[in-house]
Write a protein that binds this DNA or RNA. Structure first.
Length: 430
RNA sequence: GGCAGGUUGCCCGAGUGGCCAAUGGGAGCGGACUGUAAAUCCGUCGGCUUAGCCUUCGAAGGUUCGAAUCCUUCACCUGCCA
């Protein structure tokens, strides 16, 4: 390998290049000097999620190689909706979309450097879209699009074959294509990145820039993350893994990564980690050698949790994990550690009034209160299956109760469902 | 617009009057085995004041001692014809 590794070489060995317009031309362009690139995020939720992080960090890598990113949040495109394979989207109210734009814009702060000569620039496609008239749009932009080509796009074709598609969503591609034109004009942007699902939209933009500006610009997509077990990446049964700490706690975020399947950890590290290649190779060798140590998973979780939530939150999440999964007796943990771990995991407060005669409410009730069980029936079932534990001792009878004397440090009861779901019950003293 | 078929639990899909809270598979959950992994096996998988009761089979009515199952209307989906 050459002494100076280019961004394209780096992305290649990380397996982050799925499709591109002209890779040699792009390699030449990136080597020639700093270029401006963009990857847009539509405000379809109040937060970005782990899946988006693939794109975000790819852009971050470009910035680390001296290129300038445009942090585009789709205030306009988010109002229209990119066609999905399965069904028409429900339009979100404009004020909600506007609020989400702000939140997502803020989240990007963490990953891009907005200072310096190649500092990122925040943009919102509403800027050039909202003032545009229908006739102007149809004449200047619409004229360059062939419906035949648009119909071939995977999501559009799938929708036509099934339930159909509204004109609104069908038009989405024109908006995203026009974004590229605007960013080219305003910032000289010459590269757009995204997931493979965005290839159609991105190429539409490349075409439009060529038609309207007479310049060949670049496109690059990252591969779809596929997990070994076939399930969707970045999702758990309880839903999406969000970057917002109020939607997915740093503890949950960290645990999600620690639980990465052995078969997926190599891809995960290459995709997300900023460690040098030698370190990643060493971690993977360790994982192959001593899988039970879960070194690669821990390193992945540690690095990403710190990146997304900060080092303090990362440390707290790791301490919580060590406390809850440690072999020792929970009672031996210092009160502060236990309290922090349970607060991080999730906990519920039992008011003093609910403690009668030194007895807590029955276990089935507490399992529901902590959210470990979704109903009383569910709680009883779990206890019946032998899957519920209080202070690491199996609960035999769902109607039985813990007493004040059983509490750790006089106030904590640790409930557990199965192996991984913990919740703290903090009992108020009168 | 006409004709035919369909709409069942998280998903797929059995079930044509009582034995149906509803076969089976998948997902999920729990246990065993492990490494907070995977695979495998076993169990479980609407709710509750749980030997019982309540609410579910597109929606609303109706027939019946009794309906997911029969009838009527409505909504939506699929196919064929215009």
């Amino acid at each position: 390998m050459a002494a100076v590794s280019t961004i394209i070489d780096e992305l290649t060995w990380r397996g982050l290049i799925a499709q591109s317009t002209d890779l040699d031309a792009l390699r030449a362009a990136t080597s020639a000097g700093p270029l401006t690139l963009y990857c847009g995020f539509d405000p379809t939720a109040p937060s970005l999620h782990l899946g988006n992080l693939v794109q975000i960090l790819t852009v971050r890598r470009f910035q680390q190689h001296g290129h300038r990113p445009l942090a585009l949040v789709g205030g306009a495109t988010g109002l229209i909706g990119d066609p999905r394979m399965n069904s028409e989207r429900v339009l979100n109210p404009t004020d909600v979309v506007e609020q989400w734009v702000g939140r997502i814009r803020q989240q990007l702060d963490r990953f891009y450097d907005f200072e310096g000569p190649n500092g990122a620039v925040a943009v919102n496609n509403l800027e050039w879209t909202q003032g545009m008239g229908v006739l102007e749009f149809l004449r200047d932009v619409g004229k360059h699009f062939a419906v035949g080509t648009m119909l071939k796009r995977e999501a559009v074709a799938a929708r036509l074959a099934a339930e159909g598609i509204s004109y609104t969503e069908f038009s989405y591609q024109l908006l995203q294509g026009y974004d590229y034109v605007q960013l080219f004009r305003r910032f000289g942007c010459s590269l757009q990145t995204g997931g493979t699902d965005q290839w159609g939209n991105i190429v539409a933009g490349v075409d439009l820039v060529r038609r309207m500006e007479g310049t060949a610009v670049h496109a690059l997509t990252t591969p779809l993350m596929v997990k070994a077990d076939g399930t969707k990446f970045g999702k758990t049964e309880s839903g999406t893994v969000w970057l917002d700490p109020t939607l997915t706690s740093p503890y949950a975020f960290s645990q999600f990564l620690i639980n990465t399947d052995d078969r997926d950890v190599a891809t995960m590290l290459r995709t997300f980690s900023f460690r040098p290649r030698e370190e990643i190779d060493a971690l993977l060798a360790a994982a192959a050698d001593r899988p039970q140590a879960r070194e690669a998973q821990r390193a992945l979780a540690s690095e990403l949790t710190a990146l997304v939530h900060g080092e303090a939150e990362r440390d707290a999440a790791e301490a919580a994990g060590r406390a809850l999964f440690g072999q020792g007796d929970l009672g031996d943990l210092p009160a502060a550690t236990l309290a922090a771990a349970l607060t991080e995991a999730s906990h519920v407060v039992v008011p003093a009034a609910d403690v009668v005669g030194g007895q807590l409410p029955p276990y089935d009730d507490l399992l529901v209160r902590t959210g470990l069980s979704k109903s009383l029936s569910d709680a009883r079932r779990t206890v019946g299956e032998g899957g519920a534990y209080a202070n690491n001792v199996r609960i035999e009878d769902s109607a039985s109760r813990a007493s004040i004397g059983d509490l750790h440090h006089g106030e904590w009861l640790v409930l557990r469902r199965g192996k991984k779901a913990f919740a703290g019950v903090r009992v108020e003293r009168p």
